[in-house]
Computed example of a mutant assay.
Amino acid sequence: MIALIASACAESEAPKDPYEPELKAAQKQAASDFEREVLADLKITKAEFDEAVNRYVACAGDRGVTIKARPTAGGYYNYDLVKSGDAETVADECRKGTLALIEPIYVDRLMNPEKKDLDQLQADCLVRAGVAPKGYSGDQLAADRAKSFSDTSFGPDNPAVPACLSNPNSGL
């Protein structure tokens, strides 16, 4: 009876966050009050991520460098940097304290919340989208990606391909 209760208690505990080690490491490396505040609860919300992006863009702008944050279908951003003089140096310096620690964890968690094999998640997305055949594997995807999808019945121009590669959990 005691063993049954103990196992029931163990099963009812909330599953451990697979990104907790990265979040704790990021807490220790935080270079700004903003990062420390965001990472204090070991969670990064969409609003906190967007604020980090806004701070990054504003930091660069305050130093005369234009960075445009373009939202992707995957739920994160790509950045256009207007190259000039020391633009890349400024962009790198502005990442510290804004995006450097927050963005990689946020994007990884967004794309792969359970920290499973990413190639397999992307392959499963292509199957769900009806692009790849049933049984298409992560290993096949890796091999096809290495050949720029040239030997597949689908190609990189199919809209589902970049959508699944940018975020396999995007709802396809």
Rank of each mutant, 00 (worst) to 15 (best):
M1L: 09
A3R: 11
A3C: 03
L4N: 05
I5C: 05
C9P: 00
S12T: 08
S12D: 07
E13S: 12
A14Y: 01
P15V: 04
P15I: 01
K16R: 15
D17R: 00
Y19E: 00
E20C: 02
E22S: 14
A25F: 11
D33M: 07
D33W: 02
R36S: 11
D41A: 12
K43Q: 15
K43T: 13
T45A: 12
A47F: 09
A47V: 08
D50T: 04
D50R: 08
E51Q: 15
E51L: 13
R55W: 06
Y56T: 07
Y56E: 06
G64W: 11
A69C: 01
R70D: 12
P71Y: 00
P71N: 03
T72L: 11
A73D: 12
A73Y: 07
G74F: 02
G74S: 07
G75F: 04
G75M: 06
Y76N: 15
Y79W: 01
G85P: 14
G85Y: 07
D86L: 10
A87K: 05
A87P: 04
A87F: 06
A87I: 10
E88F: 13
E88H: 10
R95Q: 14
L99T: 10
L99C: 02
I102N: 09
E103V: 02
V107L: 09
L110R: 04
K116C: 03
K116A: 14
D117P: 09
L118S: 05
D119N: 15
D124M: 01
L126E: 07
A129T: 00
A132D: 03
K134Y: 06
S137A: 08
S137Q: 09
D139H: 01
L141H: 09
L141M: 08
A142E: 10
D144A: 13
R145A: 15
S153Q: 13
S153I: 11
F154G: 09
P156G: 14
P159V: 03
P159R: 04
A160R: 05
A160Q: 12
V161F: 08
P162G: 12
C164M: 04
L165E: 11
S170Y: 10
S170R: 11
